Amino acid sequence: MELPLILLVLGMVVLGAIAQRVAGLGFAMLVSPFLVLALGAHQGVFLVNICGVVSSAIIVPRVWKDIDWSMFRWLCSFSVVGSVAGALLAGGLPQAPLSIVVGSTVLAALLLSLILVRANVTVTGQVPKAGAGFLSGLTNALAGVGGPAVSAYAVLARWPQRPFAATLQPFFVVTGAVTVAMKFITAPDQLPPLPGWAWIAVAVFIGGGVLIGEQVQRVVTDRHARFFVLCFAFFGAVTALVSGLRAL
């Protein structure tokens, strides 16, 4: 892989890590469409899955006291099933259809977030939790985007932002780890061909992005951070969708 492309990947990784630390989610939604355009659908989603695990693992100790472990166990129980199913489906999709899946998933998530802001509906019980967990695992494996399903559940269940954002971090670690393991087993050739130093740089840049995000969090409101993530993600999603449609 050429150096300019590696630098582009590192830049996107930093932005994603900042968004993840400030808003609790956003790494995949922000980064996935652009990495799919830069690396191709399979390699781009695979890299997003790996980076998502690393970024959330770095954040977990910093939000430990706010994690709702009961909610975490419920969501993870079903996200694992969705991750396995999604990894198997993704391995059989050609590049162009998978690019369309990524772009469509992110666009649907953006639309859903706009609708739910105005929704006056409250959900309760275990079935919505199970559905959110399964869909999150499925979309994470297919498109690298697992946050929208649980985010939608959080809005409808009136789950407070602080424990929600904290609980998502170990949830993303487990869901992403299962997805990455399945892809290593079923399609190891889809791993991006980064040199060894670049993999180390990815981890370092994610850590740096998390630290920058902690400073940004002090001066930027959640509303402004999410607005930036949504705008950037919308542009990337439309581009990935158009690219996939043209490739067909």
Results as ranks from 00 to 15, higher is better:
Ala119Leu: 10
Ile100Tyr: 03
Leu88Tyr: 09
Ala119Arg: 06
Gln126Leu: 15
Val123Ile: 14
Ser104His: 01
Thr122Arg: 06
Gly91His: 07
Asn120His: 10
Ile100His: 02
Leu93Pro: 13
Leu98Asn: 04
Val101Lys: 00
Leu110Lys: 03
Ile100Glu: 04
Gln126Phe: 14
Ala96Asn: 15
Pro94Val: 13
Ala96Ile: 07
Gln95Pro: 06
Pro97Asp: 02
Ala119Ile: 10
Leu111Tyr: 02
Pro94Trp: 14
Gly92Lys: 14
Ser99Tyr: 03
Val101Trp: 01
Gly103Glu: 07
Gly103Thr: 05
Gly125Lys: 06
Leu116Glu: 07
Arg118Trp: 08
Ala85His: 05
Thr124Phe: 14
Leu114Glu: 08
Leu111Gln: 01
Arg118Gln: 08
Ser99Arg: 11
Val102Tyr: 02
Ala90Trp: 01
Ile100Gln: 05
Leu110Gln: 10
Gly92Pro: 13
Leu93Lys: 07
Ile100Thr: 11
Val101Gln: 00
Ile115Asn: 02
Gly103Lys: 04
Leu93Ile: 15
Ser99Pro: 05
Ile100Asp: 04
Leu88Arg: 04
Leu89Gly: 05
Leu110Tyr: 08
Gln126Thr: 13
Gln126Arg: 15
Leu93Val: 12
Leu89Trp: 03
Gly91Trp: 02
Ala85Lys: 02
Ala109Gln: 03
Ala90Glu: 01
Leu93Asn: 13
Leu116Cys: 13
Val123Lys: 03
Val102Arg: 05
Thr124Asn: 13
Leu107Pro: 00
Gly125Leu: 08
Ser104Ala: 14
Leu116His: 09
Ala96Asp: 13
Ile100Arg: 01
Pro97Thr: 04
Leu114His: 06
Ile115Cys: 09
Val101Thr: 00
Val101Ser: 01
Ser113Pro: 02
Val117Asp: 12
Leu98Arg: 03
Gln95Val: 12
Ile100Ser: 03
Leu110Phe: 12
Leu88Thr: 04
Leu111Val: 07
Leu112Ser: 11
Leu112Lys: 04
Leu98Ile: 01
Gly86Leu: 09
Pro94Asp: 12
Ile115Ser: 04
Leu107Trp: 02
Gly92Cys: 14
Leu114Lys: 05
Gly125Met: 13
Leu98Val: 01
Val123Trp: 08
Val123Gly: 09
Ala96Phe: 11
Gln95Cys: 10
Ala87Asn: 03
Thr124Ser: 14
Gly91Tyr: 08
Leu98Met: 05
Val101Ile: 12
Leu89Ala: 11
Leu93Ser: 15
Val106Ala: 10
Asn120Gly: 06
Val101Cys: 00
